[in-house]
């Protein structure tokens, strides 16, 4: 029943958002049907479009799950962006110099990238553990340091002299992740991470404790949860996931090198997706896919119709507002109705 309600809320809000945007497209003298058809054709319409959408969604899923787990545990890790970049740059640099066979190299590079992300989050974890520094501010600030540090690495020490933009050299060809007919293996890693995260949050004791911390930290502490070590672990684990996103961007993406701007907006989009999904891991996965469709379809939409791709950012924002708004509204009113009926019952009994 709860699952049903959640799905219904999502679908209703997304439809509402589409209707609101249709009105806006109309005022701009374009045809909403054409715009949405282009979105569909280029986002889902063919296998090429679909596989490209899944590839686009892959990093979003990682950063989204990372944010979802953190927020659900009451740990405000906003450092996905920096962690992703640290993971990416580590993998990109090692991918140039490492000399091991392909079957071993790809997983090793991916995991090392993940650990680089975990290490970056670990700085925040250490500051929290020893100096009670709020991870909200430390992860946020580490984003800037990570961003400029990685750009420095790509512009000076590890610069590819032949590249036209600040970028590291191409990683060895043996470390390119294979794809199946256009669908990169990285997506299956994302699915695996989804299962792992779901298992962790729902099936393990530590996951349960984390969720309790998310509801109420003080209550969890009194109830005997190891709040300190749990939140350290959550920070490290979510940092690992973001770092893994960066590593797979290098190994499985299309660039195969670290360059300025490679992190795009994955970190913040991940945070946004987690918020819409109410920090639920499974929902995050589906919203990641959905935003992948939008992101991928946007290019085609801009191409077919004269509507600029910035419109998608607008649509995303409206979807976020609709989903969050509808959910709060439904919760508010259903609670009001429930208490009202209960009150009636009590009054009638007397």
């Amino acid at each position: 029943m709860r699952v049903f309600r959640r799905v219904a809320i999502s679908i209703i809000s997304i439809l509402t958002a589409f209707v609101v945007c249709a009105i806006l497209i109309r005022t701009q003298k374009s045809s909403p049907i054409e715009v949405y058809r282009a979105l569909y054709t280029y986002g889902l319409g063919s296998w090429a479009a679909f596989s490209s959408t899944l590839n686009t969604a892959t990093p979003l899923i990682f950063t989204g799950i990372s944010a979802a787990i953190a927020f659900a545990s009451g740990v405000v890790n906003l450092g996905q962006h920096g962690q992703l970049l640290m993971g990416a740059v580590t993998t990109a640099i090692l991918g140039v110099y490492l000399n091991i066979p392909s079957w071993l190299g790809i997983p090793v590079l991916a995991v090392v990238g993940g650990f680089a992300g975990a290490l970056w989050a670990g700085i925040a974890a250490m500051l929290k553990r020893h100096y009670e520094m709020d991870e909200f501010i430390s992860t946020l600030m580490l984003n800037f340091i990570g961003e400029y540090f990685t750009i420095y690495l790509a512009t000076y020490p590890f610069l590819d002299r032949k590249a036209y933009v600040p970028a590291t050299r191409l990683i060895k060809r043996v470390y390119f992740m294979p794809d199946f007919n256009g669908l990169n293996v990285a997506f299956f890693v994302a699915v695996f991470v989804l299962v792992l995260s779901f298992w962790y949050m729902k099936m393990t004791r530590q996951g349960y404790e984390s969720r309790m911390m998310g509801y109420n930290v003080e209550f969890a502490r009194v109830g005997g949860c190891a709040v300190e070590s749990n939140s350290t672990f959550v920070l490290l684990f979510t940092g690992f996931l973001s770092g893994l996103a960066g590593a797979l961007l290098i190994l499985g993406g299309t660039q195969h090198r670290f360059m300025k701007g490679i992190g795009a907006n994955f970190g913040w989009d991940g945070v946004m997706i987690a918020i819409i999904a109410n920090n639920n891991v499974i929902e995050t996965f589906f919203y990641g896919l959905f935003f992948g469709i939008l992101k991928n379809g946007a290019i085609g939409m801009e191409f077919e119709t004269s509507v600029p791709s910035e419109f998608i950012l607008f649509l995303e924002a409206i979807i976020v507002l609709c989903v969050v708004g509808t959910r709060s509204a439904i919760e508010y009113y259903s609670q009001a109705i429930r208490s009202l009926t209960k009150l009636r019952k009590v009054v009638a009994e007397k």
Partner: peptide
């Protein structure tokens, strides 16, 4: 945005 390069070219 490097993530748009490949799909843009294909489109």
């Amino acid at each position: 945005d490097p993530s748009l390069y490949y799909p843009s070219l294909t489109t």
